[in-house]
Amino acid sequence: MKATTLTDGPPEQHVLVFETGDEVVTGLTDWAAGNDLPGSSFTAIGAFSEATLGYYDLDEQEYAEIPVDGQVEVLTLAGDITLDGEGGWKVHGHVVCGRRDGSTVGGHLLRAVVRPTLEVVVTAGAAHLRRRHDPASGLALIDPAAKAG
């Protein structure tokens, strides 16, 4: 993955270009940690050679996996990057993938391998966002009142 800063802000904007074989969630997470990224949002387009998407089953409080085998276009990928409740980084993205026949599949991005490229624009805010565990849903939700410590 290659990265460059577009604007120093506020807000800061960065472009990340993933290459064939790069894994997206790990790459975004590692990049955010290495740059001490404040609360950020991102959008992306490109293509995957394979992916695993998820549909959150609220009753079971877990993701049902949706395997996406073979080449797909990333029609849209959008999400946020925040601090999790334990000081690590959490990438939360939703994606719609287009297949060769024009059909689509979408869901929560759990894992994806790029082929040939994925172009990501990250917009970084001025302050960190934190997630807190929500017992009712089982999810780590953004807590706007939480401050980075």
Results as ranks from 00 to 15, higher is better:
His133Met: 10
Glu23Ile: 11
Ala3Ser: 11
His92Thr: 13
Val17Thr: 15
Gly54Thr: 05
Asp59Val: 15
Gly34Arg: 12
Glu23Gly: 04
Asp134Met: 03
Thr5Ser: 01
Val121Lys: 03
Val24Phe: 01
Ser103Ala: 13
Ala3Met: 02
Pro38Cys: 15
His133Trp: 13
Arg99Asp: 07
Val15Ala: 08
His133Thr: 05
Gly107Val: 03
Arg130Glu: 05
Leu6Asn: 09
Gln61Met: 15
Leu141Phe: 10
Gly93Ser: 09
Pro135Arg: 10
Lys147Met: 12
Ala145Pro: 03
Lys147Ile: 11
His133Asn: 07
Val91Pro: 00
His108Gly: 00
Tyr55Cys: 01
Gly149Val: 13
Lys90Val: 01
Leu75Ile: 10
Ser49Ile: 02
His128Ser: 10
Ser103Cys: 09
Pro10Glu: 14
Leu16Cys: 03
Leu110Ser: 05
Gly107Met: 03
Asp59Arg: 14
Glu23Thr: 12
Gly9Glu: 13
Val24Ile: 15
Gly70Met: 13
Ile66Tyr: 04
Ala44Val: 02
Ser103Pro: 09
Ala136Pro: 02
Ala127Lys: 12
Thr104Ala: 08
Val25Gly: 01
Ile66Leu: 14
Gly107Asp: 03
Val95Tyr: 01
Asp143Pro: 07
Ile45Pro: 00
Asp143Thr: 08
Ile66Trp: 04
Leu118Asp: 00
Leu141Ala: 14
Gly88Tyr: 07
His94Ala: 09
Ile81Met: 12
Ala140Val: 05
Leu16Pro: 01
Lys2Cys: 04
Glu19Arg: 09
Gln71Arg: 12
Leu139Gly: 04
Met1Thr: 11
Pro116Asn: 09
Glu23Ala: 08
Glu86Cys: 03
Gly46Tyr: 02
Thr76Val: 10
Thr43Glu: 06
Leu16Tyr: 00
Tyr55Pro: 00
Ala32Cys: 12
Thr29Leu: 11
Val121Trp: 00
Leu109Ser: 03
Leu58Ile: 11
Arg99Pro: 03
Arg115Phe: 06
Ala64Lys: 15
Ala33Gln: 14
Thr82Asp: 08
Pro135Thr: 11
Asp36Trp: 13
Gly9Asp: 08
Leu75Lys: 10
Gly93Thr: 04
Leu109Pro: 02
Arg99Met: 13
Ala127Met: 08
Glu119His: 09
Gly102Val: 04
Leu28Pro: 02
Ser40Met: 07
Val121Gly: 00
Leu109Tyr: 04
Val74Trp: 00
Val72Ile: 05
Leu6Lys: 14
Val17Trp: 00
Gly106Asn: 08
Glu12Thr: 13
Val95Arg: 06
Gly88His: 08
Lys147Cys: 13
Gly107Pro: 03
Pro144Cys: 11
Gly34Tyr: 10
Ala32Tyr: 04
Leu109Gly: 02
Tyr63Val: 02
Thr20Arg: 15
Glu50Pro: 00
Phe48Asp: 01
Gly39His: 09
Arg100Ser: 11
Pro38Leu: 04
Pro116Glu: 07
Glu12Phe: 02
Val113Tyr: 03
Gly98Asp: 05
Asp57Leu: 12
Arg115Gln: 09
Lys2Ala: 11
Phe18Leu: 10
Leu37Trp: 07
Glu119Tyr: 05
Val91Met: 04
Gly39Ile: 05
Val68Ala: 10
Leu129Pro: 00
Asp101Ile: 10
Glu50Asp: 14
Asp8Lys: 13
His108Met: 08
Gly54Phe: 05
Ala146Glu: 08
Ala126Arg: 15
Ala51Lys: 09
Gln71Leu: 11
